[in-house]
Amino acid sequence: MRTLILFTLALIFSLPARAEPATTADDIREMAERFLQTWADDQRERNRRIEYQIGNVDRRLKLAPCEGEPKLEFASDPLRTPSPSMLISCAGKRPWRMYVTASVEAYGPAIVAARPLTRGERLSSAALTTSEVQLNASRRGTLTDMSNIQGMMVRRPVKTGTVLTPDLLEAPDAIERGDHVIILARTGSFSVSSRGKALGNASIGEQVLVENLRSERTVKATVVAPGRVEIPMQ
């Protein structure tokens, strides 16, 4: 009887361990497919149309089984590039991570020029229109809110139908040479104001030389609003 028990135990321990199911290429593609489809559904609610195709995944791929839910995220912005990567990662005792590429075309409304625009022209709603374009055709991005670009200036000539991108526009000067301005000297919650004259052009956030009309001193100030500049109190 003892011999039979020992033989049975030896037989059990000699059997190969049952292999855990590996994470295969098909599993990875399925994860990527679900992730992209969920994202595409979300974009549809934002009035954007998404077409996508998942890149190649090596059929020989075999990764450790994932104990929990794998984490998926874009490694690059799919609204800024037509070839974004997705990072799929799994934590646990045998963690792994891998990248999967995709071909993505994102279509949606964007602002385009309704007529030719000249260099230095200030934008108005009459010069602009909205049209469906491929949003991720260029890494320069697109513009979708007309209220954000009203009054902006065009950096260079633009043809009718051109998709407006941030690099095509610049903020107009908030202060021009010769303008009378309010100089605000500030330290903490205490401030003193005086009148001055701008010695150059500058937009909000830029620095400009200003002559203090009372002391006749020239100071370098930061433009904080049209007609207003700020300097640190000495």
Score class of each variant (00 low, 15 high):
Ala40Arg: 12
Ala40Asp: 09
Ala40Ser: 15
Ala40Trp: 08
Ala40Gly: 08
Ala40Pro: 12
Ala40Thr: 09
Asp41Val: 06
Asp41Glu: 14
Asp41Gln: 11
Asp42Phe: 10
Asp42Leu: 10
Asp42Val: 09
Asp42Asn: 11
Asp42Gly: 13
Asp42Ser: 14
Gln43Met: 15
Gln43Thr: 04
Arg44Gly: 05
Arg44Gln: 11
Arg44His: 12
Arg44Ala: 12
Arg44Pro: 02
Glu45Cys: 04
Glu45Lys: 14
Glu45Ser: 10
Arg46Gln: 13
Arg46Asn: 09
Arg46Cys: 06
Arg46His: 09
Arg46Trp: 07
Arg46Gly: 03
Arg46Thr: 07
Asn47Ile: 09
Asn47Tyr: 14
Asn47Asp: 13
Asn47Glu: 14
Arg48His: 09
Arg48Ser: 05
Arg48Cys: 02
Arg48Trp: 06
Arg48Lys: 09
Arg48Asn: 06
Arg49Ser: 09
Arg49Val: 09
Arg49Cys: 08
Arg49His: 08
Arg49Ala: 08
Arg49Gly: 07
Ile50Cys: 04
Ile50Ser: 05
Glu51Arg: 14
Glu51Asn: 13
Tyr52Val: 05
Tyr52Ala: 06
Tyr52Glu: 01
Tyr52Cys: 05
Gln53Val: 06
Gln53Met: 10
Gln53Arg: 13
Ile54His: 02
Ile54Gly: 00
Ile54Thr: 01
Ile54Asn: 03
Gly55Tyr: 04
Gly55Ala: 02
Gly55Pro: 01
Asn56Phe: 14
Asn56Arg: 15
Asn56Asp: 13
Asn56Leu: 10
Asn56Gln: 15
Asn56Tyr: 12
Val57Trp: 04
Val57Met: 05
Val57Ile: 10
Asp58Pro: 00
Asp58Ala: 04
Asp58His: 03
Arg59Thr: 14
Arg59Glu: 14
Arg60Trp: 06
Arg60Glu: 10
Arg60Cys: 06
Leu61Gly: 02
Leu61Trp: 02
Leu61Arg: 01
Leu61His: 00
Leu61Gln: 01
Leu61Pro: 02
Lys62Gln: 15
Lys62Arg: 15
Leu63Asn: 03
Leu63Gly: 01
Leu63Val: 04
Leu63Met: 08
Ala64Phe: 02
Ala64Asn: 07
Ala64Ile: 01
Ala64Glu: 03
Ala64Met: 01
Ala64Arg: 02
Pro65Arg: 01
Pro65Lys: 01
Cys66Gly: 04
Cys66Asn: 00
Cys66Ala: 00
Cys66Tyr: 00
Glu67Arg: 07
Glu67Leu: 06
Glu67Trp: 00
Glu67Lys: 03
Gly68His: 05
Gly68Asp: 04
Gly68Cys: 01
Glu69Tyr: 05
Pro70Cys: 04
Pro70Gly: 05
Pro70Met: 02
Pro70Ile: 02
Pro70Trp: 02
Pro70Tyr: 03
Pro70Phe: 03
Lys71Pro: 00
Lys71Asp: 03
Lys71Cys: 04
Lys71Glu: 07
Leu72Phe: 07
Leu72Thr: 08
Leu72Val: 09
Leu72Ala: 10
Glu73Asn: 11
Ala75Gly: 14
Ser76Phe: 09
Ser76Lys: 10
Ser76Ile: 11
Asp77Gln: 09
Asp77Ala: 14
Asp77Val: 07
Asp77Tyr: 08
Asp77Thr: 08
Asp77Cys: 08
Pro78Leu: 11
Pro78Glu: 07
Pro78Asn: 10
Pro78Tyr: 06
Pro78Arg: 08
Leu79Pro: 07
Leu79Phe: 11
Leu79Gln: 15
Leu79Cys: 15
Leu79Ser: 15
Leu79Tyr: 07
Arg80Gln: 10
Arg80Glu: 15
Arg80Ser: 15
Arg80Ala: 15
Arg80Phe: 12
Arg80Thr: 14
Arg80Ile: 11
